[in-house]
Amino acid sequence: MRNLSRLLTLSLFSLPMWVHGTEQTTVGRAGQDVAVVRVSQQLAHSRAHVADLQKGVARQESISREASLKLQQKDNAIAELERQLRALKAGQKAPRDGD
């Protein structure tokens, strides 16, 4: 009987600590759950931002390739015109038949 009394007394004194510990665990888990959700949302936002940036980079690369191609075409046209001009100048310097 004396042991039972001690056990009940000990149980009554430890009950508030156990309940308080359970509340902290529940609150801690709820806080962790909120943190996990928040981090997941931030991760999703960051991934979407990265995808947008990748699309932007792809667009800029495409524009750059097109501009490079146009520049190459213009360089080729200039080179051809220079070749024609040299040929004309060379033809003018050559003595003409009948002059």
Rank of each mutant, 00 (worst) to 15 (best):
10 L>M: 01
97 D>G: 07
56 G>R: 08
9 T>K: 02
20 H>L: 14
92 Q>F: 14
44 A>P: 06
58 A>W: 01
79 A>P: 02
30 A>W: 13
74 K>E: 10
16 P>Y: 09
88 L>E: 11
23 E>M: 14
34 V>N: 07
27 V>H: 08
47 R>V: 14
95 P>M: 03
2 R>M: 00
25 T>D: 11
65 R>A: 06
31 G>N: 15
88 L>K: 11
88 L>W: 09
61 E>R: 15
21 G>V: 03
72 Q>R: 12
75 D>A: 13
66 E>Q: 09
96 R>G: 02
25 T>R: 12
34 V>K: 12
94 A>L: 14
41 Q>C: 10
1 M>K: 01
69 L>R: 10
5 S>N: 03
87 A>V: 12
63 I>S: 06
94 A>P: 02
99 D>K: 05
64 S>C: 01
8 L>Y: 03
69 L>E: 08
9 T>I: 02
46 S>T: 13
52 D>E: 13
12 L>R: 04
28 G>I: 09
92 Q>E: 14
17 M>T: 10
71 L>S: 10
59 R>P: 01
32 Q>F: 09
78 I>G: 00
51 A>L: 06
20 H>V: 14
78 I>D: 03
80 E>Q: 15
67 A>K: 09
51 A>Q: 11
52 D>S: 12
22 T>P: 00
81 L>C: 07
89 K>R: 14
53 L>Y: 02
82 E>H: 06
63 I>Q: 08
35 A>Y: 11
3 N>L: 04
49 H>G: 03
35 A>C: 04
15 L>N: 02
17 M>G: 08
47 R>G: 04
89 K>F: 05
97 D>M: 10
28 G>M: 04
7 L>D: 00
61 E>T: 15
32 Q>T: 10
93 K>S: 11
55 K>S: 10
65 R>T: 03
85 L>Y: 10
41 Q>P: 01
48 A>M: 06
92 Q>Y: 14
50 V>T: 11
23 E>K: 12
27 V>C: 03
52 D>T: 13
85 L>K: 15
45 H>C: 05
68 S>P: 01
18 W>K: 13
88 L>P: 02
55 K>R: 11
73 Q>T: 06
26 T>M: 08
13 F>Y: 05
32 Q>K: 11
67 A>C: 02
40 S>W: 07
63 I>P: 00
65 R>N: 03
71 L>I: 06
70 K>T: 05
27 V>N: 12
21 G>Q: 10
63 I>R: 12
55 K>C: 02
47 R>I: 14
99 D>R: 09
2 R>C: 00
40 S>Q: 14
10 L>C: 00
65 R>S: 04
74 K>T: 13
28 G>C: 06
17 M>D: 06
19 V>L: 13
4 L>R: 00
50 V>K: 03
99 D>P: 04
33 D>N: 13
61 E>P: 03
59 R>T: 13
7 L>A: 01
86 R>F: 02
45 H>T: 15
20 H>S: 14
51 A>H: 05
